[in-house]
Every structure is written in structure tokens, then in C-alpha cells.
């Protein structure tokens, strides 16, 4: 009897642990192994999506889900907004980040659509001080492989990637230039930018 009790306690502990993982997302401390694991999963999902043969529209929907799960879209969106993120009201910022989610998924969903017929393979991870950089290469038919780096951090409270660098070109840097230019063209009007982001990307 005592034995059975012990087992059930142990099982309960495991189940509670699992449940808290599911609720709070990855609770493991970020290290080289967990960073690699995260990008392995992410790349697995991207490969499955581009291999599924679904239409570009469906693929983009799928990417929005993948981005929501693996990317710190909140910090990417705020950083892309530049100095204006400091002066915006919380409500303005919230609406903008929500519009940015769709915009970024459409934009990079289209880009990953170009990988159809190929796949991405993780090659290694390096500790870059405040974050980890997980390296990968694309294996594409009839085209030279290129390098993709995912930068992963836990500074949001969760293990998420905050930048994708394709052959040296950073998503975060490009979006900062792009969103900055879009905002300038609207005389710094964040509400107008938020409305227009719905049809951009």
C-alpha cells in the first residue's frame, strides 16, 4: 500500500509539472540545449508547413500560428517602431502590435513559400552572451544553400526567438527600416500606420 501511495504522489507531481509547462509555456532555463531544441521544433514546423502543399493563403495562416508560438512578436514590433514606441499610449501600442502580428506572418509566410520543395536543417548553436544564436542552412532544389540564424532569448520570460538573419540580413533591422519609413510617410501617426498594416505585408 505505501508503495502505491508513493507512485501516485510521484505521478501527481509529474502531471502537475506537465500541466504547468502547458500553461506557462517552456519553463526550462534557456541554455544551449534548450535553445537548439526550440529552433529544432520551430524548423520542424516550418518544414512541415512548406512540405504540406497547402495554398499560400493557408500557409500564411499557419505561419501566423508559428510566429505566435515561437517568436517574441511583441518585442519585434516595438523595436521596429523605434523611438515612437516610447511615446505611444498603451492602447495605441497594443493595437499596433496586434496589426503587426498579421503583417509579419504574411510577409515572411510569402518568403518561406519560396522554400517549397526544400527544407531547413539546424547545424549548431553558439552562446552570444545575452542570447543564443542557432544556425541553420536551407537545402533547396537547384539553388545554393544559404545560412539562416535564429536569435533566441528568455528575456521576455519565455524562450522565444527575436530575430531571423538570412544570409546576414536581419528581419529585425529590415523591419525597423520599413516600419520607420511607413511611419514617416504618415507623419508619425501610429493609428494610421496600424490601420494600413492590416493590408500590408
Amino acid at each position: 500500500m505505501p508503495n502505491l501511495n508513493k507512485t501516485s504522489i510521484a505521478r501527481r507531481t509529474v502531471l502537475t509539472g506537465l500541466a504547468s509547462c502547458l500553461v506557462a509555456g517552456p519553463v526550462f532555463a534557456l541554455d544551449k540545449r534548450t535553445a537548439t531544441l526550440l529552433v529544432d521544433q520551430l524548423v520542424g514546423e516550418i518544414n512541415a508547413a512548406i512540405d504540406s502543399g497547402m495554398s499560400e493563403t493557408k500557409l500564411i495562416g499557419r505561419f501566423e500560428g508559428i510566429f505566435a508560438e515561437y517568436a517574441d512578436v511583441n518585442i519585434i514590433a516595438r523595436s521596429a517602431l523605434g523611438p515612437a514606441a516610447r511615446t505611444a499610449t498603451p492602447a495605441e501600442l497594443e493595437a499596433y502590435v496586434a496589426a503587426f502580428r498579421g503583417y509579419i506572418a504574411r510577409k515572411y509566410g510569402k518568403r518561406f513559400h519560396e522554400f517549397v520543395g526544400g527544407k531547413i536543417v539546424v547545424t549548431g548553436t553558439s552562446d552570444r552572451g545575452k542570447f543564443y544564436e542557432v544556425m541553420a542552412v536551407t537545402e533547396l532544389r537547384g539553388s545554393a544553400p544559404f545560412e539562416v540564424a535564429f536569435r533566441v532569448s528568455d528575456r521576455s520570460g519565455q524562450n522565444l526567438f527575436f530575430d531571423i538573419i538570412i544570409e546576414g540580413i536581419s528581419l529585425l533591422s529590415s523591419e525597423r527600416v520599413e516600419i520607420g519609413a511607413l511611419l514617416d510617410a504618415r507623419n508619425g501617426d501610429i493609428a494610421k500606420l496600424t490601420r494600413d498594416l492590416a493590408r500590408l505585408g
Binding site: I75, S79, K130, F131, R151, S153, S173, R176
Partner: peptide, 8 residues
């Protein structure tokens, strides 16, 4: 490259 967390 940008460290977006450092900015905030």
C-alpha cells in the same frame, strides 16, 4: 544587429 531587449 539590434538587441531589442536592451532598448526597453
Amino acid at each position: 544587429y539590434i538587441d531589442p531587449y536592451a532598448e526597453f
